[in-house]
């Protein structure tokens, strides 16, 4: 085998996505939740670029290289607003434990 197998790229992306989801649903520190979301977005970017490698140029394989540009910009906006919200809510509670922000259910 002289080139990278696209299946391996997709499997790597799936494992990274599952790891990011694990961080989001199991960790209690609120920073780990945000970083898990970033990891999932990265995994999706890797998947798009991996699929672009399997398409001929005539079928628009450039799309797989352009959509991650927008994903990166959306991730920047998400990190910006998410971290502002973390600053906002830790100011009142003085903790970064996600379980401390369960006021809505009480």
């Amino acid at each position: 085998m002289d080139t990278i197998d696209p299946i391996h790229v997709q499997v790597l992306a799936a494992i990274l996505f599952a790891l990011g989801l694990t961080a989001v649903v199991t960790r209690r520190n609120i920073f780990f939740l945000l970083m898990g979301v970033e990891l999932m977005l990265n995994a999706v970017n890797l998947s798009l670029i991996g699929f672009a490698r399997t398409l001929p140029a005539a079928q628009g394989s450039l799309t797989g290289h352009i959509v991650p540009l927008f994903t990166i910009a959306v991730a920047a906006a998400e990190a910006c607003v998410g971290l502002a919200m973390v600053i906002c809510i830790t100011r009142g509670k003085d903790t970064v434990d996600a379980d401390a922000f369960a006021d809505m259910k009480e």
Binding site: A14, V25, A52, T54, L55, A57
Partner: peptide, 29 residues
């Protein structure tokens, strides 16, 4: 942790059966 483990295993199991091949004429972006 059941949720991500299920999603991960089903994704990997699904992808393992696919036959993707690297396209030699894929555009260099």
């Amino acid at each position: 942790i059941i949720l991500p483990v299920t999603i991960g295993f089903s994704l990997v199991g699904f992808l393992g059966k696919q036959a993707l091949k690297a396209e030699p004429t894929a555009v260099r972006a």
